[in-house]
């Protein structure tokens, strides 16, 4: 793992802690981006953390690009040594896999896909060595996920599964991005799952859809009244597979204003997780049972 620094035009410094994904890289990147924020460097306009990298937007009329980059580099050692622990929450997100809406969309953009002969799930299951789509779906929802980035559009979470690397699911993005994706599609690209917060363009494979809105600019949805974006980096997610009837029932309660996401407060400690992944995950999921 070696941190790489680069300029993105004359207003951005890009910091890539590692070119591959790991929770270690996530925590170092998050710590370094927090240290940059706390340093209150004049000229810093915005700090955007990502999975294993982050970007700082600065005003080169206030601080020179080289000086900006040097200030960030000066904080790296402290970030490398920082504690990899977060007080956070686990959220249960219902997913209707193989739903009709993402199916219609993936058929519409078949010529942009690696394998036009089947569905995105057929393809993902096959290239990950699963005998059936059902087994693949089971692998997708049986262990929890970690929100390692929020972005793309309007509060979209990127999720990284809390399992050993050899159990991680990996799929390529579409060959050419689609110009349309249904709102609340549960997608997959690289080793990341995501929830498309709004309808729009996208390059991730499409697995299903959740009835639970995660972005509301009007802030009318009860659990989005405080802020229009639901997720933040460090949130933990457990997918719950649902069928059409359950999807329709939840959609109705969201419309009624009576839907409340199932959430429990938990702590995430990377060393404890690495020492016993399945045991640690079992405790995370137990917290949901009591919620």
């Amino acid at each position: 793992m070696k941190t790489r620094y680069s300029f993105g035009g004359d207003e951005h410094v890009y910091v890539e802690v590692d070119d591959e994904m790991s929770l270690d890289a996530f925590f170092i990147s998050l710590s370094l981006s927090k240290l940059v924020r706390e340093a209150e460097i004049p000229g810093v306009r915005e700090i955007c953390p990502a999975n294993a990298s982050f970007e700082v937007r600065f005003d080169p009329d206030v601080i020179s690009p080289d000086a900006m980059m040097e200030r960030i580099k000066g904080l790296e050692a402290e970030a490398q040594a920082a504690e990899k622990r977060l007080d956070t929450r686990i959220i249960e997100i219902p997913v209707y896999y193989e739903d009709p809406w993402t199916h219609e969309t993936l058929m519409r953009f078949r010529e942009r896909h690696q394998d036009p002969s089947g569905s995105d799930l057929d393809y993902a299951a096959r290239i990950n060595g699963y005998d059936s789509v059902a087994d693949f779906i089971e692998a997708h929802h049986s262990q929890p996920w970690f929100v390692s980035m929020v972005g793309f559009v309007s509060g979209l979470p990127f999720l990284y599964q809390l399992v050993d690397r050899d159990k991680q699911l990996e799929v390529p993005k579409y060959l050419r991005p689609r110009t349309d994706t249904p709102k609340l599609t549960v997608g997959y690209g690289g080793c990341f799952s995501c929830i498309y917060s709004v309808r729009g363009a996208g390059g991730y494979q499409m697995f299903g859809i959740t009835p639970m809105p995660i972005f509301d600019p009007e802030q009318k949805i009860t659990y989005l009244r405080d802020f229009m974006v639901f997720f933040k980096p460090g949130d933990i997610v457990k997918w719950k597979p649902i069928d059409r009837a359950e999807y329709d029932r939840i959609t109705k309660t969201v419309e009624d204003g009576t839907y409340t996401p199932k959430i429990a407060e938990v702590a995430f400690d990377l060393d404890a997780f690495n020492a016993d992944m399945s045991g640690f995950n079992a405790k995370l999921m137990e917290a949901l049972d009591d919620a």
Binding site: G8, G9, E11, H12, A50, S53, G151, G190, C191, F192
Partner: peptide, 11 residues
Amino acid sequence: NIVDGCYSYGS
């Protein structure tokens, strides 16, 4: 493809 990272204006 890369591990999803930030995009900047103009990138």
